[in-house]
Design a protein around this nucleic acid. Sequence first.
DNA 1: CTTGGAACTGGAAGCGTTTCCAGTCGCTTC
DNA 2: GAAGCGACTGGAAACGCTTCCAGTTCCAAG
Lengths: 343, 343
Amino acid sequence: MDDASPTKVTLVDIARMAGVGVGTASRALSNAKNVAPATRARVLRVAEDHHYVVSPEASRLARGNTGRVALVVPHLSRWFFGSVVEGLDSVLRGADLDVLLYHVGGVSDRHDFFDKLPARRKVDAVVVVGFQVEEAERIRLETLGVQIVAAGGQTATYPSVHIDDHVASRQAVDHLIHLGHERIAMLEAIDPDQPHLPSTRSPAYYEALGQAGIDIDPTLVVTAPWGGEDGAASMGRLLGHPDPPTAVFAHSDEVALGAIRTLRRAGLEPGRDVSVVGIDDHPLAALSDLTTVRQDPAQQGVLAGQMLLGMLDGRTPAEKPMTVPTELVVRGSTAPPRPRRTR
Amino acid sequence: MDDASPTKVTLVDIARMAGVGVGTASRALSNAKNVAPATRARVLRVAEDHHYVVSPEASRLARGNTGRVALVVPHLSRWFFGSVVEGLDSVLRGADLDVLLYHVGGVSDRHDFFDKLPARRKVDAVVVVGFQVEEAERIRLETLGVQIVAAGGQTATYPSVHIDDHVASRQAVDHLIHLGHERIAMLEAIDPDQPHLPSTRSPAYYEALGQAGIDIDPTLVVTAPWGGEDGAASMGRLLGHPDPPTAVFAHSDEVALGAIRTLRRAGLEPGRDVSVVGIDDHPLAALSDLTTVRQDPAQQGVLAGQMLLGMLDGRTPAEKPMTVPTELVVRGSTAPPRPRRTR
DNA sequence: CTTGGAACTGGAAGCGTTTCCAGTCGCTTC
DNA sequence: GAAGCGACTGGAAACGCTTCCAGTTCCAAG
């Protein structure tokens, strides 16, 4: 019976077997100072031999910290959110933190989280992915001493990492304008869970058109939730327009892909007949030859993670919101407008 | 100073303030028996007033369990994996377990996880999402008393939930055969991280063709990693075939979408010129009118979670692998073959 | 009026660490 | 050669809870 049964082996046992005191054993294992190299080696050896590992519960109880971070994520199955989490996870686990996942579906789940989490005192910090935290909730966490960071959302009053929605939108719309389009529609996407929030991607549309001297036609703006099917439906409405657009700015790739399906079903070829641009550079966007504005969600996760570590570790003062760059990726779904048949 | 500072309030304090012993206070808070209703109410009241919550570290140390489950996920940003995790999360958190996320990128990360996890004694169970655990690793966990469950992978020797790849593949291939196709290609997808594993989706192809009396043409089978770009490249190779296929069975929707892009670029219309079928029913598959075999990864996550709870809670003996159904979803990318121009 | 037992209660003994404190020990420094 | 200092060590005291054990109390049964 080498080590067949996973019987309890405690620090005390290890200390005894290594012929040292528990204090020394603890120091040796936790890589602390004031342990003779030989002693440390001996302790580590014994621990190794017995597959000993410190009890995280006991360690944390004694040490007084939790070492846990909560990730609050609304739509994990979506590329954007999953990518942000990937980035966060890599950084946070590297710092030896436990990464607790909280998938919150709808808005009620979300409130639930903020209600219950503190009622368990379970984490040192909370990272919200891709949505806004209400001020009341933020304050609640703050008074509880829980740090908060946002990744991939919109600009916020607390530390956060995100793209500049205005710049990204300008990149998309300006691209259409530079191609020569004048009748440019917008498929405005809203978060069905936070419908009251104005889209941060819309103002750039009006600004760009205004600066280009193009008249705004409100009937070319269609608002819907930000899913692919919604995009398809919105595009359908635009096709019924008496003077349909020659180009479409979609708030996201998913919406854009939905629009493309509608175009194809109507016998129109994206790029040739109607230009479509999205935002995200979803991996599948390339498979549809969709022109888009690329953002890197994993990077946003990484940066948010690092920001959080700074706040937890080095007593760095909570940093300000931070922006990561976006980049226009031109593919086949955009082209100069076709000469109009009728005028 | 109502409760301005989040100062330490311990069970002892609560007990004193409620005028009871710590034992009673503990029982009252943990919903245990043998507490007079009035007493319990009083304790809860006091706790509530002071925003008191039990320290999970201390509680677990005393109680002796960890209440933690690790989710090991390779590609979080992909729809399939994210969905499985969503399902798992909802079930596991419902049981008041901490869900620890472990994103493992490549195969080395994977080994790393199995090396280090036990070296921290941090979890009661491990759920692996969408990949195979090597036998040695499984045994390692077993001897450590860590339960293991697989969700969304292939069939395994340990408890798991997944679709029947053979059935799903038959649904796809049979569909093509029923439409009248005879030159049916297969875009075989392999996991680049586990390239040695034979695809469980391929045998059905040979079986179905064999049963339909169609000769197998090995040159119609192309193997590549399971990404969209890989699918596009593979399709490109097929287009160079002297006697190209009239239909394509892709192992996944992503591969299928890649194939579709290649077809379109070659001036071929999916469905009309070449039929394409995938597996998954990725949300964006509908946006490309892709015929596919639907699976429900979130459900797989839910079932795997429930299975795990049974193993942890009720001492249910470890259950056997479990299969969830799949369903053919016919869309525009498949149709009967066009009459051949030349024969 | 006993007596037995069920329902409740208080307190002490852990749970397995970390960390502080008081020493040893072996050298350097006057 | 004594004093002083730094490196190292052992052990006890937390850390905040759960749970066991030994009572109380109160009431129904005898």
